[in-house]
């Protein structure tokens, strides 16, 4: 059930591209540039909340292109948490980010004094 005319719907003329040989190629190259992973590292600072065990070292440099899920997994490992042990993670004591958001994105929006502060708790805290 494909529509016979691709992109039959009109786009506003403001978005209109010019005809030309290399436009699509240029666009693809642009996309490749934006796909490159951010290899910079950012400082993540873990802070325990409530009864959660405190970490001896709580500053870590983490590659910015990592997803937040990787941060959670790292934290679980550091705490020696087994699968199924409850762990709730928050940014700035305020919210749980989506696990597929990147550390880079979170750092840009929520860092404090050059750190991304990740709070962790064994019970739902700001749920």
């Amino acid at each position: 059930m494909q529509c016979p005319e691709p992109n039959a719907r009109t786009l506003p003329s403001a978005w209109t591209s010019l005809d030309g040989g290399n436009v699509m190629h240029e666009a693809h190259e642009a996309l490749e540039t934006y796909k490159k992973k951010d290899v910079n590292k950012v400082v993540v600072r873990f802070k325990a909340v409530g009864n959660a065990p405190i970490m001896k070292q709580n500053f870590y440099k983490i590659t910015a292109s990592n997803r937040f899920q990787a941060v959670i997994q790292f934290l679980r490992k550091e705490l020696g948490w087994k699968q199924g042990d409850p762990l709730f993670t928050y940014i700035n004591l305020a919210f749980s980010p989506a696990p597929d958001d990147t550390v880079a994105n979170l750092f840009k929006s929520f860092s404090t004094d050059g750190h991304l502060i990740v709070n962790y708790s064994t019970t739902a805290a700001w749920g």
């Binding site: 992109n7 436009v23 699509m24 666009a27």
Partner: peptide, 10 residues
């Protein structure tokens, strides 16, 4: 999304 090669959007 990428605009298509030579595509016209009136």
């Amino acid at each position: 999304g990428l605009l298509r090669e030579g595509a016209r959007y009136p």
